[in-house]
Design a binder for these strands. Structure first.
Lengths: 161, 161
DNA sequence: ACATTCATGTAAGTAGTTACATGATTCT
DNA sequence: AGAATCATGTAACTACTTACATGAATGT
């Protein structure tokens, strides 16, 4: 909402589109969250449209709270990492299956790097802040998957006979 | 449990120790999960000890299910990334605050790389599968934070005047 | 004797998912 | 007329967190 007013329906598309890889959310959660935002005064219904459409706008208090969160807080707890949890448990399967697992991690990382490169090409990077930060986020993804690819190749060589 | 029988109390220490950075879990969740595991026959109480201690052991069916999960399934949905979500929203604050944010990401990545190097030194890597896979997981962490550090430095230079 | 550690569990609440339910407008 | 899209919402459930509650054994 800080980048512009939107309805729940609009936000569903954003969360299933450009934000899907960063912060996925379901339709149901988006609508209930908008309700809470309006109740606590962080957002408000700016306009009503066709078919019951409700366009939400961030309030002054909501923008203040967003800025406070951005500059004053940091992620508190470690993110869960299912891929690494599996690595920890690889001792429960045969060496061959462990090799297969690491090969698969590598292949999926390879595919992700290619996909992000294609996404970068096809995206119409307009002007403005969201384009700058969108590119920066995309670069993180590219580096992340490239790192995974190299690591998986290295890890495979560490497995004992 | 696949690496050896353990009580809820033992597992709390594992989840707050070596698994804390990969799959954090609370005491309360561990106990209720052990209850569910026993109810569904994936684990069982192997022995009772002092002070009400209950030592759980994985069953044949539990080990089969673990192996099935490891070789047949893959993480289905994208992991949420709070650090990147913040990057997407950096357009809501001043350039200086965005620079500060990226400098902080870099500093924390730097600290994490140093901490993991120290952890590697002080850990007694015995023999066996858990040592091999523990080291591989640690290497992932080191590469991950090194990547973050380089990326944050690069990102800072991308910000417009 | 007192503090610490070992050890288990429950209650209340928040966050999030899946599935269901409904209806208006627009396109072909 | 019928299909697709736009648009919102709720119910039931699973996952997870925080806080509370209890007591036995061990160390000083």
């Amino acid at each position: 909402l800080a980048y512009g007013s939107a309805s729940g329906y609009d936000l569903v598309r954003v969360f299933h589109g450009s934000l899907a890889a960063v912060w996925p959310a379901t339709q149901s959660q988006i609508y209930s969250e908008l309700g809470k935002l309006a109740e606590t005064g962080l957002a408000e219904v700016a306009a009503q449209g066709m078919r019951g459409r409700k366009e939400y706008r961030v309030t002054e208090s909501g923008l203040t709270e967003l800025r406070r969160w951005l500059v004053e807080t940091r992620p508190e707890k470690a993110q869960r990492n299912e891929m690494l949890l599996r690595v920890f448990l690889l001792g429960a399967v045969t060496r061959e299956q462990a090799v297969d697992y690491l090969a698969d991690v590598r292949a999926r990382a390879e595919a992700a790097v290619a996909e992000l490169a294609a996404l970068e090409q096809r995206t119409d990077w307009g002007e403005g802040a969201s384009a700058v930060y969108g590119r920066i986020a995309l670069e993180w993804g590219t580096r992340f998957y490239a790192m995974n690819r190299e690591w998986a190749a290295w890890a495979r060589k560490q497995l004992p006979q």
